[in-house]
Nucleic acid binder design. Structure first.
Lengths: 238, 238
DNA sequence: ATCACTAAATGAATGTCATTCATTTATTAG
DNA sequence: CTAATAAATGAATGACATTCATTTAGTGAT
């Protein structure tokens, strides 16, 4: 038994971490292997989501994440290789929230509508993930892959030629990602301010957009583009 | 050749490109005010573009930018408030490269085609700017604003109702930004690997896409979506 | 000419991050 | 019982962006 007798109390600086949130109530452990690991990928994902919800993506640092889990930052690296890995975990979790229930239920058009709107809504809250998803091999994201499978199946059942399905999905997805950014843009993004005099057409167009209504500009644009894509892509069906 | 800026818009920062690199070899100056300032926004923009071209966006650090200009990093802060400002300068420079020459020339459809493809191509090389543009008030980017003015004018001339113009442009732009990411994705991004067994429809769709051709998948998807949007949005014209 | 003013540059901090590493230790397999 | 291992610790490290007190050289007014 290697030096078991009387654990020498590495004492020291425990107080710091105190108890940021709940995380792992009370019981602080010292270095060493606990009966059950404090960390795992599911817990890291949950803590990351919690942190993002509370502090936004700027607040998502490895140190803050560790604090949330009542653990030292370096401990995270036993479970993820990098911060990017954390983002991938979050991304894949979110993919499971996208509503694909329309596929197999009603019309193809309605299924795409439901899917696209919910996809956009989910990622509008998480735009910092978009650059990550866009380049993410699907192998690394099982939930995301599952979403693609359902959607592909829906397209196939609707009569799409197999070789056009991926292109059609990619086109829709590109529009969705771009539109997700749009949701986060400031309301006055198109205000030309002092340069308005030099841009009469644009300024007038912006003004007349603002003049009408209740609906959020980002939603109007998304609806417009989505219906165009549904009609245009739908024409590919046999 | 690009640009064809809107009437009334001046060259603005265009002249920047003049002497990109050289910077001021040999002559090191000590602190103090030189006869002509070593730095200005045009020079910073040019140096940033040079650096991005050579090392990519990872290589664009304030220190590297300063070195490129043969200046201390802190000197940059006399001309830009932050690194984000540098990115804005670059973004606005690129906006001038987008081809809007079709508006006022041929058909609306062709003008949109030319504009959209060139817009995508330019930003596919600069995807790290997309999160910046998406939230960028147009006031801060005169060349970008000039682009909007030309495009708005083209839509108006084509018979679009004024209050739909901004939404239509935003929809197209969202698609363009999303598609720009797509260009940079690895070729095997959709390879399900070991999970292929669980995703038969998707895997088959990916395979049959790969089976056909010469054209890059990102280009096929972009063409497909763009034509759908042109048709669908075009129907809004009076 | 002189003198104050000011724009522009310097280099030495600062602070925030992600990430690495040598150690420590509880649990488990043999 | 012992050796191996997974999992945690805290103290570096090394990039970065950004700030600040200083320095200096043109410029414009007197």
């Amino acid at each position: 038994m290697p030096a078991a007798a009387a654990p020498g109390t590495t004492a020291g600086t425990a107080g710091t971490t105190a108890d940021s949130t709940d995380a792992s109530k009370g019981v602080r452990r010292r270095a060493g292997r606990p009966s059950a690991a404090l960390l795992d990928q599911a817990g890291i994902t949950a803590a990351a989501l919690e942190l993002i919800g509370r502090k936004g993506y700027d607040g998502l640092t490895m140190a803050a994440l560790a604090r949330q889990l009542d653990v030292a930052p370096s401990a995270l690296y036993n479970h993820v290789a990098s911060k990017r890995d954390v983002l991938l975990l979050v991304e894949d979790h979110l993919a499971a929230l996208v509503d694909v229930s329309g596929f197999g239920a009603g019309s193809w058009e309605d299924a795409v509508r439901t899917w696209a709107w919910s996809y956009r809504d989910v990622f509008a809250q998480h735009t910092p993930l978009i650059p990550v998803i866009a380049v993410l091999p699907v192998t690394d994201a099982p939930q995301t892959l599952a979403m693609y499978e359902t959607v592909s199946g829906g397209f196939l059942a609707a009569g799409f030629p197999e070789e056009r399905i991926v292109s059609a999905i990619v086109a829709l997805e590109s529009f969705i990602f771009g539109s997700a950014y749009d949701v986060t843009a400031p309301a006055d993004i198109f205000d030309a301010g002092s340069m308005a005099g030099a841009t009469p057409h644009f300024t007038a167009a912006v003004r007349s957009l603002a003049a009408r209504g209740d609906e959020r500009p980002a939603d109007v644009a998304f609806g417009l583009g989505l219906e165009a894509l549904i009609t245009g892509l739908g024409a590919l069906r046999r």
